[in-house]
Design a binder for these strands. Structure first.
Length: 752
RNA sequence: CGCGAAGUAGAGCAGCGGUAGCUCGACGGGCUCAUAACCCGUAGGUCGGGAGUUCGAUCCUCCCCUUCGCAACCA
C-alpha cells in the first residue's frame, strides 16, 4: 500500500462567540485528533491545524449582548476555546485565529487572486436594509417564503424546510428579523463567486470520483445541493467587522469579506503560521498533489467544505480535500443541544468537574474521549447520556480494559518476580497461538478502520482485544497453577516479597506437601511445568498489554502514557509499527507496580450532572464563563437587571387590559406552537392567536378566565388575524401560567 | 399539512437480498489474580404494519402507522 507523502488535517474552526460543547468535540475534534495521532504514530508527515473563526455578524451581536467590544469577545472566547482543547488533549500543531494579520493578508491575497483572474463577478444590487436598525441585513436576518417549496420558514441563505440554498432576493415577502419590518432595498456593490460555473466539476469530482469513499450522508447532501441548482454567492458584505477588501480595490471601501469566505482560508493561514514557527515550508501542504487534505467537520458544514471551499481551492490552484468525514449531531439526554436553552454540556464544564481537582485528571479526559468516540455520530445522530457515560466507563474501560491490565500486572508481580517472564516456545499451545493471531488481526483491523475514518469500530476492536486477553487468562488460570507451585508460605512480615516463587521452588522441596493433595503437582517437575505455564501466560498477557498501549494511544493518550510508565519504557514504543509485535517487552525486564488506569464513575456523580443540566436550563447564558466580565448576573432568580427601562404612568394607561373567558380553542394547522382562541369579552367575542400550544391542550383551557391586552394592533399569524394578546406568567423552567383574577369576574372588566 | 430522520431482544445500537448479531442489563453457573472486577452459559425478536418485486427480504418498491426534529445558536 502506498501512502500520501504528507497530510494536512483540519478541524472545523470554532466560532468565537461562545464556548463549545461536547457535541462539537465529538463531531470535529476528537475524530481528527485520533486520526492525527494515528498518523503520527505511523511516522507520516502530518500537520493538524485549527483556530478560532472570529468574523461575521454574530460577533458584534454577541458583543452587544455581553456589553463589550467585538475584540473583547474574540479574545475571551479564543483563549477559552484554545484552553479547552488543550485540556482535552486535542493535539493541534497550531491553534490559530482569523483575526491575525497573517490571516487577513492571506485572505486578501486569496480574494485578489480570484478577482484578478476574473473568477469573481461584481454586481450592483439592491440589498435589503433595515432602516430602523440602520444596517444592511445579513442573509440570516431576513425571513420569508421559500420560492422552491413555499414554506414560510425560509431564511435569506437557506430554506429550513426544503434545504435549498437561497439568496435573500429569492425570498417572497421578506421581513427583517431585527425589527420585524419589511426591509427596504438599498444599492450596494458586491463580489460574487459563481458556483454554477463549476457544477460539472463538482459532479465529476464528488458524485463520480468520491462516490465510494465519502460517507453517504456527505454525498447525499452534496447531491441535493448540486441538483438544487448552484447560485452565485456573495463574497463580500457591508459590515465593519471582518477582513477589509484590499484598499486598492475600487468600490471596496466599507466592505469586508463574507465570513464564510475568509474562515476556511483560516486553515491555510494557520498552516503558514505553523510553518513560520517551525521553519518549514507551508506550500507543499496546500499545493502539492501528493498531500492528502482531510477536513473534519459537523454536518452543518458540509456545503462549505464540499462545495464552496473546493471551488475556491481549485480556482486558487490548491489541492482539494481527499475526504470530508462529516459527523452528524450529538443529542443530549433526549434533546437537541441548544445554546439558548442551555441544554448542553460544555467542554469547560466537564473539565471543571472531572478533569481538574483531585477528581481524576487525565484519566477523566480519556473517559470522555472514550465515550464520545464510542457514541460518535458517524452515520446518524446519536445521544450523550450520563448513564451511558457511566456504563461505558465502568463496564468497558474499567472492567474490561483496565482490569485486564491490572490483573496482568498483579499476577506478574506475584508469580513472576515483577519481571517479564520468559516464553517457553516448546510449550506453546493452541490458546497461545490463537491469542497471538488475535493480536496481529487486531492491529490490522484497527489500522484499516482508522484509514476509513471508522473510529467507533476501531475503538471497539481495541477494547475487544483486551476482552480476548481476559478470556485467554481465564482459560489459562495462572492463579490455579500457582497453587501447584509453592506450598511454602513466605515468612510472615519481613519485606513480603510475594513474587518470590522461583526462589521458593529451589528451597522448598523438603517441605511438606500442601494440604489439598497437590501430590503429583508438587513434584519438582510438576512445579517447573506449572511455572513455565505461568510464564507463558503472563508473557503473552504482558506483550498483549504493550500492544494495547500502542493501539489505544490515538484514542486515549493519557492512558497510553500511564501504561508506558508501568512498563518503564519510552514513547518510542508507541510507534505504530510496534503494534502486532510480541517482542515489545524484553524478558527479564522488571516492571513497575500496577496503577489503576481508570476509576469508576459513581452514581452520585451522574445524578449531580443531571441536576446541573436541568438547573442550567434557566441559567443566564452569559453566566457560563465565570472569569471575565465583572462577575454579575447568572443567578437563578430574577434580578433588577432584568427590568426594562422605566416608563411613565401615561405609558401604562395606553394599555387596555380586560378580563375575558376562553370559549373556544383549536390548534392552528401547520404551526406547532399556535392555538387559535376565541374569547368572550362580554361586549364582544374575538379571535386571538397565541403561541401556547406546547403548554396547553385546547380542550383543557376552554372556560378559563384570562387577562388580555385588548387594544393591541391586529396581526396576522399563519393567515389568521389575532386581535389581542393573552397575558401569561413564565416561570423559571419555562412553564406558562395564565394570569387571571383571583375570583371570577365579569367578562370585559378592566384591569388597572 | 409539508420536509427530514428513525422504527431490529428490557435499554443502546450493528447488519441491509440467502441459517438475526454486538454491548449493557436480567437469570444460572464457574473462578477468585483483579477496581463486587473476569469467564462460561441461558432466556428474550414473526427485524413498526400491509402489499408488491424475487426462487428467497430485516435489507429493494409502494402504501400506511408511530416517534423525534423542523425559532435561534451550532460540530
Amino acid at each position: 500500500m502506498s501512502y500520501p507523502k504528507r497530510y494536512l488535517i483540519t478541524s472545523a474552526l470554532p466560532y468565537a462567540n461562545g464556548l463549545k460543547h461536547v457535541g462539537h468535540l465529538a463531531g470535529a475534534y476528537i475524530p481528527a485528533d485520533i486520526y492525527v495521532r494515528y498518523l503520527r504514530a505511523q511516522k507520516r508527515d502530518v500537520v493538524f491545524v485549527c483556530g478560532s473563526d472570529e468574523h461575521g455578524t454574530a460577533i458584534p451581536i454577541q458583543a452587544m449582548k455581553e456589553g463589550t467590544t467585538p475584540q473583547a469577545i474574540i479574545d475571551k472566547y479564543h483563549f477559552a476555546m484554545k484552553q479547552d482543547f488543550a485540556d482535552l488533549d486535542i493535539s493541534f500543531d497550531i491553534y490559530h485565529r482569523t483575526s491575525s494579520p497573517l490571516h487577513h493578508e492571506t485572505a486578501q491575497e486569496f480574494f485578489t487572486y480570484l478577482n484578478d483572474r476574473g473568477e469573481l463577478e461584481t454586481k450592483e444590487t439592491e440589498q435589503y436594509y433595515d432602516e430602523e436598525a440602520k444596517s444592511f441585513l445579513a442573509d440570516r436576518y431576513i425571513k420569508g417564503t421559500c420560492p422552491n417549496c413555499g414554506s414560510d420558514r425560509a431564511f435569506g441563505d437557506q430554506c429550513e424546510n426544503c434545504g435549498t440554498t437561497l439568496s435573500p432576493d429569492e425570498l417572497i415577502n421578506p421581513v427583517s428579523t431585527l425589527s420585524g419590518n419589511p426591509p427596504v432595498k438599498k444599492k450596494t456593490t458586491h463580489w460574487y463567486l459563481p458556483l454554477g460555473k463549476h457544477e460539472q466539476f463538482l459532479r465529476t469530482w464528488i458524485l463520480e470520483q468520491h462516490k465510494d469513499d465519502w460517507r453517504n450522508t456527505v454525498i447525499g447532501q452534496c447531491k441535493s445541493w448540486i441538483e438544487g441548482g448552484l447560485q452565485s454567492r456573495a463574497v463580500t458584505r457591508d459590515l465593519d467587522w471582518g477582513i477589509a477588501l484590499p484598499s486598492s480595490l475600487k468600490g471596496g471601501l466599507g466592505k469586508v469579506l463574507y465570513v464564510w469566505f475568509d474562515a476556511p482560508i483560516g486553515y491555510i493561514s494557520a498552516t503558514k503560521q505553523w510553518a513560520i514557527d517551525n521553519g518549514k515550508d507551508w506550500k507543499p501542504y496546500w499545493q502539492d498533489k501528493e498531500t492528502k487534505l482531510v477536513h473534519f467537520i459537523g454536518k452543518d458544514n458540509i456545503v462549505f467544505h464540499c462545495i464552496i471551499f473546493p471551488i475556491m481551492l481549485k480556482l486558487h490552484g490548491d489541492i482539494l480535500p481527499d475526504n470530508v468525514p462529516a459527523n452528524e449531531f450529538l443529542n443530549l439526554e433526549g434533546d437537541k443541544m441548544s445554546t439558548s436553552r442551555n441544554w448542553k454540556l460544555e467542554m469547560r464544564d466537564y473539565i471543571n468537574d472531572f478533569v481538574k481537582k483531585e477528581n481524576g485528571g487525565g484519566q477523566c479526559v480519556d473517559m470522555l474521549r472514550y465515550y464520545l468516540t464510542q457514541i460518535a455520530p458517524e452515520t446518524k445522530d446519536s445521544e450523550f447520556t450520563w448513564k451511558g457515560f457511566q456504563d461505558a466507563v465502568n463496564s468497558e474501560l474499567v472492567s474490561v480494559f483496565g482490569n485486564f491490565v491490572n490483573r496482568t500486572w498483579v499476577l506478574m508481580h506475584k508469580l513472576c518476580n515483577g519481571k517479564v517472564p520468559v516464553f517457553h516456545n516448546d510449550l506453546i499451545d493452541d490458546q497461545d497461538k490463537q491469542l497471538i493471531a488475535d493480536i496481529t488481526a487486531s492491529k490490522e483491523k484497527v489500522e484499516s478502520l482508522l484509514e476509513q475514518y471508522k473510529f467507533r469500530e476501531a475503538l471497539y476492536e481495541v477494547i475487544d482485544l483486551s476482552r480476548k486477553g481476559n478470556q485467554y487468562m481465564q482459560k489459562k488460570e495462572p492463579w490455579i497453577l500457582a497453587k501447584k507451585l509453592a506450598p511454602l508460605n513466605p515468612p510472615q512480615g519481613g519485606t513480603s516479597e510475594s513474587g518470590n516463587m522461583k526462589r521458593s521452588l529451589n528451597i522448598d522441596d523438603t517441605k511438606a506437601p500442601p494440604s489439598e493433595g497437590f501430590g503429583e503437582a508438587s513434584s519438582l517437575e510438576g512445579r517447573e511445568a506449572a511455572q513455565k505455564s505461568i510464564d507463558n501466560c503472563l508473557h503473552l498477557c504482558l506483550q498483549l498489554s504493550a500492544n494495547l498501549t500502542v493501539l489505544i494511544h490515538p484514542f486515549l493518550p493519557n492512558t497510553a502514557q500511564k501504561m508506558l510508565h508501568m512498563m518503564k519504557v519510552v514513547d518510542k514504543i508507541l510507534d505504530w509499527k510496534n503494534a502486532g509485535s510480541l517482542k515489545l517487552l524484553s524478558v527479564g525486564y522488571s516492571l513497575r507496580e500496577p496503577q489503576l488506569l481508570f476509576r469508576k464513575i459513581e452514581d452520585a456523580e451522574i445524578a449531580e450532572q443531571m441536576e446541573k443540566l436541568k438547573a442550567g436550563l434557566v441559567k443566564a447564558e452569559t453566566g457560563s464563563l465565570t472569569a471575565g466580565q465583572a462577575g454579575q448576573k447568572s443567578d437563578l432568580t430574577p434580578q433588577a437587571s432584568d427590568l426594562k427601562p422605566q416608563i411613565q404612568y401615561d405609558d401604562f394607561t395606553k394599555l387596555d387590559l380586560k378580563v375575558a373567558t376562553i370559549i373556544a380553542a383549536e390548534k392552528v394547522a401547520k404551526a406547532d406552537k399556535l392555538l387559535k382562541l376565541e374569547v368572550d369579552l362580554g361586549f364582544e367575542k374575538r379571535i386571538i392567536v397565541s403561541g401556547i400550544a406546547l403548554h396547553f391542550k385546547p380542550e383543557d383551557i376552554i372556560g378559563k378566565q384570562v387577562v388580555i391586552v385588548a387594544n393591541l394592533a391586529p396581526r396576522k399569524m399563519k393567515g389568521i388575524e389575532s386581535n389581542g394578546m393573552i397575558l401569561m406568567a413564565e416561570d423559571k423552567d419555562g412553564k406558562l401560567k395564565f394570569i387571571n383574577p383571583d375570583e371570577a369576574s365579569a367578562n370585559g372588566s378592566s384591569v388597572s
